[in-house]
Amino acid sequence: MGAESILKQRSIFASLRTWLGFARFPYIAMTVLGLVLVAAFFGSWISPHSANEIDLAMRLTPPAWLDGGSSAHILGTDNLGRDILSRLIAGARVSVTIAAYAIILSGALGTFLGMAAGYFGGWIDAIISRLIDIQMSVPSIPLAMLFVAVLSPGEAMVVFIIVLSYWTWYARIVRGEVLSLRERDYIALAKVAGVSTPVIFIRHLWPNVLNTLLVLATLQFGSVIVFEAGLSFLGLGIQPPDVSWGGMLSDGRNYIEVAWWLITMPGFAIMMACLASNIVGDWLRDTLDPRLKQS
């Protein structure tokens, strides 16, 4: 139910946007998402310091606008005197890279299996659907702990765990979509005309699920970033000296009473990235849906 309805329902953000009478194009969310991407790709050029540059003399400097703040460290420093803004920028690279790999791989796997299950039905559908059910009943975090315990943690492992937990979304939604597409008369007409199955997949099914995939991938972007942060927070994800938003949260945890900005800054970054991707995803869905275009 949940998987299918996520694309049908207008989320609370979309309703809020309509209610507030905002412009149809989500400028703010696009800007936030753009900033994250710029940080990820051009981080080394704009970063004021090196992410791992330790300066114990400046440790726990508050953000620049507070008493004791320094203009050299706009968002303050952490317990080792590392510049938080620089670390956020470095973390963005990790988050975006992991999210991109994870979404492309889980999307490809889920789409392939979902299309096959939806189109062929029968035992192929039965096997894939059971696989989805099994995967969805396995909690991701213990699964991640298991894999990290047996193998070694790192970026590839994070991607692998995310793909394992996220492909089911694509598979379920694409399967549902293809199930309804399969009943369209133009699919029957293609068969009657003698069009081969691969051509039916590429010419008739693929363009019709592409929009759904695009919307789902955008919505998933935020969710994957949060998931990755969760893994890193638990020490199952990105390992130091690599920087990640979840790792920053974890590091800052011990200083929550003396330096709130240590966890607030990465927390805010995670929240904004996720929120922005949700809003952009909603906008994409509304824009790409031809039914909404007509009315």
Partner: peptide
């Protein structure tokens, strides 16, 4: 043997140009 269905909305793939829709049987 060919067929014309009831619903002209469902029988034409909305993402294809009319010329593609018409040519498809011959391409096949």
């Amino acid at each position: 043997v060919q067929v014309v269905f009831q619903d002209p909305y469902s029988s034409l793939n909305p993402r294809l140009k009319v010329s593609t829709i018409l040519s498809e049987p011959m391409w096949a």
